[in-house]
Design a protein around this nucleic acid. Structure first.
Lengths: 237, 237
DNA sequence: ACAAAAGTGTTCAGCCTACACCCATGG
DNA sequence: CCATGGGTGTAGGCTGAACACTTTTGT
C-alpha cells in the first residue's frame, strides 16, 4: 500500500490516535543495542497501528514481524505514553515536503497519538530488519550513544532499558539476546552489561548452574589463551 | 451533562475508543476490598475517558477524583487491555432499554474500547464515592467474593491484586491503605492479607523498624487484653 | 615457563528463620 | 493469677560476598 492510499484508508483500518511502538533490543560486541529507523534527520522507534479487528498484543506481534521477520521473540508490554500534546506534526510535515510527498492538512499522522510501548529481546544475528514505506534507513544503536529522536521516543527507549534491568533479576530470560549456544563467560558478560555493574565470576557461574536451566555441551576451542569454556544451551521444558 | 448530550459530544471531547479504568483498592475489616459500580445486574470498574487536551495520567487522576474525591492517593498505571472484540454493546443496550433511555445505534459506548487500567491504594475511611450518571450503586467488594462483572473487568481486578502482591515486596507504600496512625500489628496484618501468607511477627516488626521509615508515637489504649501497642506514622521527608 | 582465562573451593559475615522470653493489660 | 497479645532477644542455618586455588590454553 502506498502512502496516499494509507492516508485515505487508515481511519477505516486502524484504531484512531493509538499506536504501538516496539523497543527492539539486541546484544552485539558486548553492548546492548536498539533498532531504530530514520525519518528525516532524526530517528524513531519501529511502530505501527492496531487493526480494528486485532488485539493490541496481536498488533505488537505483527509490527515486530514486519520489521524484523521474527515471530517467537520475548515480547512484552512496557508502558503507555500519553502526554497531552503528543503529536508529530512538526516532524512529519517538513519531512514529507522534503521528499516531495503530498501531505494533506489534518491527516492521520498529524493527530495526537497515545502509544502502547512494547519491548522485545532478539538475537541480532537472526534479525532481518525491513525498512518501511517512509523510513529511509535502520541502524542498531548502542543505548549509550542514542541519536536525536522524535519527541518522547528516547524516553521510551530508556524506560525499556530500565525495565530490562529490573526483569533480569527475576526471570533470567536473556537467552534471546545470545545465540542458541553460549558460554558462561558470554552470559556473565551479558548480565554485567545489562545490570551495569561487575558481578563476581565465581558466584555468577554457581548461581546460573544451580538454576539447572542449562544443558552443558562439549567445550569449544578458543583463539585466545586460557582454558576452553563449555558451551551451554537452554534446557527444553 | 446528561446522557444524550454526552453521546452527542463525546467524540469531540474525548479520544475515541480509549478508556481509563481504575482498580480502587482499600482495606477494611482485615480484608482487601475493591470499589465497584453497578450497572444493570452486573458490576464494573470506575472509569472514564481521556480528554483531547489531557494526558492519560491526568485523565486517571481526574477519574479517581470524580469517583472518590481523593487527590493524593497512590495511583499507578497497571496495564493495557485490548482484546480484539472488547466492546460492551451487549451490556449497554439491554440496560439502556431497561431504564427507558434512548439508545441510538452505533453510539459512543458501543464501540470497541482499548482500556488503560490503573490501580489506586486508598483509605476507605477518607473516600467518598460518587455514583455517576449511569451507575446505580457502588460497593466495596472483598477480592475473594467478587460479583459478576463486565467482560474482562474481573481479570483487570485480579491483575491489580497480583501487582499489589509484587509491589509490596519492593516499595512498602501500603500506608495509604491504613489510617495515618497505625500500630505494628495493623501493618503486620495488612501485609499478611496482601501477601496471602503468614509472616513471622518478630521478624516483621524488626524489618519494618529497620527501614526507619516510621515515627513512633505514644501507645494507645486497647479494649482487649494484652499489652498496649505503640502507634506509628510515616516519617516526613 | 608464563600469563591469561575458565572452572571450582573455601572462608567469613550477615541476614533470615524459628522460636523463646519478657512485659503489659483485661477478666 | 492467668490468658492474651505486644515487644524484644537469641541460637542455628542458609545464602551471598570476597578471594584463593586449580586447570587449561596460546605464546
Amino acid at each position: 500500500m502506498d502512502i496516499q492510499d494509507f492516508l485515505q484508508h487508515a481511519n477505516e483500518l486502524y484504531l484512531p490516535q493509538l499506536s504501538v511502538d516496539i523497543v527492539i533490543v539486541g546484544y552485539e560486541e558486548k553492548e546492548l543495542k536498539c533498532l531504530l529507523l530514520q525519518i528525516g534527520d532524526k530517528w524513531l522507534l519501529p511502530g505501527g497501528f492496531i487493526g480494528r479487528d486485532e488485539s493490541v498484543d496481536q498488533a505488537a506481534v505483527k509490527v515486530l514481524k514486519e520489521r524484523t521477520g521474527l515471530e517467537n521473540s520475548h515480547l512484552k508490554f512496557l508502558s503507555v505514553f500519553g502526554d497531552a500534546n503528543r503529536q508529530f506534526k512538526d516532524q512529519w510535515k517538513p519531512f514529507a515536503e522534503s521528499i516531495g510527498l503530498e501531505w494533506p492538512a489534518d491527516n492521520w499522522f498529524d493527530n495526537r497519538f497515545v502509544t502502547l510501548a512494547y519491548y522485545a529481546l532478539v538475537n541480532i544475528e537472526k534479525t532481518h530488519p525491513q525498512v518501511g514505506n517512509l523510513d529511509q534507513a535502520y541502524h542498531w544503536f548502542s543505548f549509550d550513544t542514542l541519536p536525536e529522536m522524535w519527541l518522547d521516543h528516547k524516553k521510551i527507549v530508556l524506560e525499556a532499558r530500565d525495565r530490562l534491568k529490573q526483569d533480569i533479576k527475576q526471570e533470567s530470560i536473556t537467552y534471546n539476546l545470545l545465540p542458541d549456544q553460549f558460554t558462561m563467560p558470554d552470559l556473565h558478560q551479558l548480565h554485567q552489561v545489562i545490570l551495569q555493574e561487575e558481578l563476581d565470576r565465581s558466584r555468577f557461574q554457581k548461581k546460573m548452574l544451580s538454576l539447572s536451566a542449562f544443558e552443558r555441551l562439549p567445550k569449544i576451542k578458543k583463539e585466545t589463551p586460557g582454558r576452553n569454556p563449555y558451551l551451554y544451551r537452554v534446557k527444553k521444558g
